[in-house]
């Protein structure tokens, strides 16, 4: 349990042998928001202001920040669900269209998004098998036996039994649903997966298992993750670099290893220091406290 609460940090040199990683995603000058577009070309409520990001292939970038800082909006803009007002998103050096309709099927396939709540992200009226089959048919034109076999392989990949494919999402546990949610993204055979708070709705033990799975799959399949979270310990566990968002702006970016010590921006410092710490030795330390020990002796 305690291990799950505080996943161990990541070795920044673990993948140093992959010299010169290529940027898979390059976001430059991205500005976006909601509401009617005004005469200046900006929406009424600007949520993201001039965001620049670069993400190397096979690495993970954590995006942290408080609620309302624009983390999820960033994911939606990158996925093409919300057209950007300004700026560009490029994948492998090719600039992507602003909306999903402006992107080719291959571009859409390479970039998948996984949502926070698996309860609403899976169609409650479709069996798991059908949910996983659709991206296979849509992106790869698979059918019949080959598709069935691929569904089995995907379930195996996310460590779920094959028999689960006949169940409806309502008949699964929260962790199982999130694994299916992730398997659906994997079905597209993506290169970059945007994970929008995927462990936030899970308890710490299940979340830790999901994080382990993500880590394993990254190594097996060479995936790149953009990991959006408000939970700093999960970001620490899976990410190589962290970007800190505050009021729609990226205030700082640093390697995860420097997160505890190297934050420079005052907001990042505040955010990182406000993580509650699990101090397992607090009861023992009470005995060493002079005033407390004296009080105990008197009784």
């Amino acid at each position: 349990m305690i291990e799950a609460f505080h996943p161990k940090g990541r070795d920044p040199n673990a993948r140093a042998e992959n010299a010169e990683p290529q940027p898979i995603l390059k976001v430059s000058g991205l500005t976006a928001g909601y509401g009617a577009v005004g005469s200046d070309g900006l929406p009424k409520f600007v949520i993201l202001k001039d965001i620049d990001l670069e993400l190397e292939r096979g690495r993970s970038l954590g995006v942290i920040g408080e609620s309302g800082s624009g983390k999820s909006t960033l994911a939606r803009v990158i996925a093409g669900l919300l057209p950007a007002a300004k700026g560009s998103v490029a994948m492998d050096g090719i600039t992507l269209g602003h909306g999903t309709r402006d992107r080719s099927k291959q571009e859409l396939r390479k970039l998948q998004i996984v949502f926070q709540l698996a309860d609403t992200a899976l169609n409650p009226n479709k069996p798991v098998g059908a949910i996983l089959s659709r991206p296979l048919t849509f992106y790869h034109g698979m059918s019949g036996q080959a598709r069935e076999a691929e569904v089995d392989r995907l379930l195996d990949l996310v460590r779920l039994p094959k028999a689960l494919k006949h169940r409806l999402p309502g008949e699964l546990s929260g962790g199982q649903k999130q694994r299916i949610n992730f398997a659906r993204a994997l079905a597209a055979r993506p290169e970059l997966i945007l994970c929008d708070e995927i462990t936030s709705a899970l308890d710490t033990v299940v979340a830790a298992a999901i994080l382990d799975l993500l880590d394993e799959l990254q190594r097996e399949l060479g995936l790149t993750y953009m990991f959006i979270s408000h939970d700093l310990s999960t970001v620490e566990a899976v990410c190589d670099r962290v970007a800190v968002m505050y009021q729609g702006e990226k205030v700082e970016e640093m390697p995860t290893s420097r997160m505890q010590s190297g934050a420079e921006h005052p907001y990042s410092k505040l955010l990182i220091s406000s993580v509650p710490k699990l101090d397992t030795g607090w009861l023992d330390s009470l005995g060493q406290d002079r005033t407390f020990a004296d009080a105990a002796d008197r009784h």
Binding site: G80, I113, T120, K126, F138
Partner: peptide, 26 residues
């Protein structure tokens, strides 16, 4: 407004599929 419809849209599904497969059964 549910996420699974957003997922279908992000996948690049057309209006007809979204209506027939994601909305109608619900």
């Amino acid at each position: 407004a549910m996420d699974f419809v957003t997922v279908a849209r992000a996948r690049g599904e057309g209006t007809l599929y979204t209506i027939r497969e994601e909305i109608f059964p619900n």
